[in-house]
Each structure stands twice: as C-alpha cells, then as structure tokens.
Write a protein that binds this DNA or RNA. Sequence first.
DNA 1: CACTTGACCTGTCCGC
DNA 2: TGCGGACAGGTCAAGT
Length: 291
Amino acid sequence: MPELPEVETVKRGLKRLIVGRKIINVEWDWPKSFPSSEEDVNDYLIGSVITDVKRRAKVLKIELDSDYTLVIHLKMTGQLVFRGDESFGAGHPTDSLVNDLPDKSTRVTLFFEDGSKLFFNDQRKFGWVRLIPTDMVKEINFFKKVGPEPLEDSFKAADFIKRFRRRNNSGIKSALLDQTVIAGVGNIYADEALYAARIHPETKVTKVSDKKLKQLYKAVREILTISIEAGGSTDRNYVDAEGKKGSYLKFANVFRREGESCMRCGREITKIKVAGRGTHICSFCQRRRLK
DNA sequence: CACTTGACCTGTCCGC
DNA sequence: TGCGGACAGGTCAAGT
C-alpha cells in the first residue's frame, strides 16, 4: 500500500512522536508479523530507548540504543499509529481512519514507559516488523539490491536514464515499479508519473528516448515531492503516525479516476491492466508508440 | 535472463 | 440476503 511519500510521512511523524521513549513491553498475536524470539525481545527490545527513525525505499527503521533496529515494511495495508496515554478513550480526530486501538487488525503493540503505545496494524498480514542488529540491517537482501533514493540531490537525470537502460526490454511501468531500478515508486506514483511524462505504460524502455526518460525523471521527483507535502495518498488503508489520512489523491490526475475527463485533453481516463497491476491512463495523451 | 504467475492474507464490492 | 469471483497501493519465489 504505502509508497515512498506515505512511508516518509509516517517516518516524520514517528520521529516527532517516539524518539526518546523507552519500550517496556511488546505484544503480538501473529508470528509472521513479528518473527522474533522471546530471548531477543527480552535482551534487545524491552528496556531499550528509541534513538532515531529512518526510511530507505518503502522500509522504516526504528533504531534502538541496544544497537538493534526494528525494521518495518507496511506492504499493502500496514499502519503504524502512535497513541499517547491521555488520548485513550478521549475520542479521536474526525479525519482519523482509526478508532480505538488495539482493534482486530492490530498485530504488534509496543508499550512505552510513559503509558503511550505504538500500534502496528495490518489487515492483510503481508507486512512485518523485524528485530535485527543495527549493523546487520544493510545485509538484508532487499537493501543490498534496492536502487537509489529518487529524491536525493545526488540522484541526477543521467543516473536515472542509465538505470532504466539496463531494463531496455521491459515495459516502462514494470521498470518504474522495479525497486532495484529506483526505490520507492509504487502503483499510484507510477501511473501519475507516466501520465505527466505522456508515456504509455506498456512502452518498451528501449522505445523511450533519453529526452522522454528525462521528463519521467522530473515527473517522478515532482510528484513524490508534492505528495510528501500533502501527507501522502489515502485510497483505502493508509494513515500517518497519528491515524490521519493523506490528501495527495486530490491532486492525482489519473489514479482511481477512470471514467473522468483528462485534464489536458478532456478525453476519458481508462483503466487497463499492465504487468498484472491496475493501470490508469489517458489513451490519447499516452498513445502507444508503435515504432 | 526477463517476464509472468502464484503466494502471502483479509475485506469489500459487484453481479447474479 | 447470499454467494462467488475479482480486486486492492508490495515483494518474493517459482515457473516459462
């Protein structure tokens, strides 16, 4: 579910809300959501203090003063929601998707010394929380293979083009979703970026000119930046660290807008399937390139 | 090697 | 109202 802007928004919220708090207990009811031994939990989690919260690609890292890190992937429906002691039973913001916690989707709960809590909710159980020695985090296969952060200043159009050229035989959308090409783009932002750059999602990378790839590079960076400013996109489940929705979908031009009019040409936006994923396009602005 | 499919799960929506 | 099937923002392994 959450892509780079959503995970970044959660990271910023958590950084503000949980750094410095001491963990006194943890509960979980679904081993795959938190595959840790009681021994590691007792030795390295309970009693530790949170020192920092980081993000790489769509993965969150909550660093502890025990030199262990909670590595978290929200996958499709994961949420990390902080609740302070005083907000318990005192209602919730009207723009919250989440009511009283824990609820039936709660997989992991962290209890802090001051009575506040952090809930990992995950309806579909695809996400996970792992307790790993901090110096081993970079050894996780995903981190070894994942591509560069698209919003880093050091990431230039030339790097973007070079990485896409390695996937010349793929369709452009499939390459954009490939986390080893660049990090953080998922289905929403792939559709939005391809619309902005006027590229049909099934176009082979080899058929996309350098000039077009440069436009796509700019579109990806602009769209991700705007979405972070909007607090991400809430389509179904996504919420920030306080349980609130993101508003980016108000600005989306094609995602979930099938049947509406293209803002550039007025023709109907359609939904097709590309690389197994629901895909939204204006088939006029993003004409298939036959040669 | 590169791409597609199935698996991991639950919930919702749509058509009959 | 009930039931079956398709579908949902991610990633990985296995198959072609």
